[in-house]
């Protein structure tokens, strides 16, 4: 079923949540650093999407992009509200997330999500050679493949990552 067609109804909301709820929650947790507040952000995102479903135009943006745009606004609102809340004695002031902070967190989360979408073989070599800065020969020996294969997986891994980011609507 196409969730975009019936976002006004409960089945549409269920389908949209099943497709994008986990990603939106992940982004909200990363941005707000608070699972409780992140849950509130996701609830509010779907409520706003339902209330304004007539504004959704699949010709302009995908449902995913539209929901993330709403969620971004919600996260900024919640971060500001949290920052403005009076503190009880001895409480540590939470970091106030600006719109720029939230945008950075959104891009980082999308890359993280894109990395989860590419094949396990490709992700593994990118993690080993890029994040862990391990020599290609060492990674090749550990995986029991020639060094050329590791290089090839780096190439195809970056291509797949680029494609996943494009599919998610992340601008290069």
């Amino acid at each position: 079923m196409d969730p975009t067609a019936t976002l006004r109804g409960e089945p549409g909301i269920r389908a949209a949540y099943a497709a994008y709820g986990a990603e939106l929650y992940g982004f909200a947790v990363r941005s707000l650093g608070d699972p409780g507040l992140a849950e509130e952000a996701v609830q509010e995102t779907f409520l706003r999407a339902w209330r304004h479903s007539e504004r959704f135009d699949p010709e302009v943006a995908s449902l995913r992009t539209w929901l993330f745009a709403i969620c971004r606004h919600v996260v900024v609102d919640l971060a500001r509200r949290r920052a403005a809340r009076p503190l009880v004695a001895d409480a540590v002031a939470p970091e106030a997330a600006s719109a720029d902070d939230v945008d950075r967190a959104l891009t980082a989360w999308q890359v993280e999500e894109a990395l989860r979408r590419i094949g396990e073989d490709h992700r593994r070599v990118l993690i080993e050679v890029y994040y862990r800065a391990r020599p290609y020969a060492e990674v090749a020996a550990e995986l029991g493949v020639p060094v050329g294969t590791v290089k090839s997986r780096v190439y195809y891994g970056l291509r797949a990552l680029r494609l996943a980011l494009e599919e998610m609507g992340v601008e290069g």
């Binding site: 409960e10 909301i13 269920r14 949540y17 099943a18 709820g21 986990a22 929650y25 992940g26 947790v29 990363r30 699972p35 849950e39 996701v42 609830q43 779907f46 409520l47 950075r104 891009t107 980082a108 890359v111 993280e112 894109a114 990395l115 989860r116 990118l126 993690i127 890029y130 994040y131 862990r132 970056l158 291509r159 990552l161 680029r162 980011l165 992340v170």
Partner: peptide, 30 residues
């Protein structure tokens, strides 16, 4: 794509975030 990798904290990759069970039902209820 290589530039995008720099934005991610690799420690977080092993920490997939699952929303709490029942969140979808609560949203539909709301």
């Amino acid at each position: 794509a290589a530039g995008a990798l720099a934005l991610v904290d690799p420690e977080l990759l092993d920490e997939p975030l699952a929303p709490p069970r029942g969140l979808g039902d609560r949203i539909v209820s709301l």
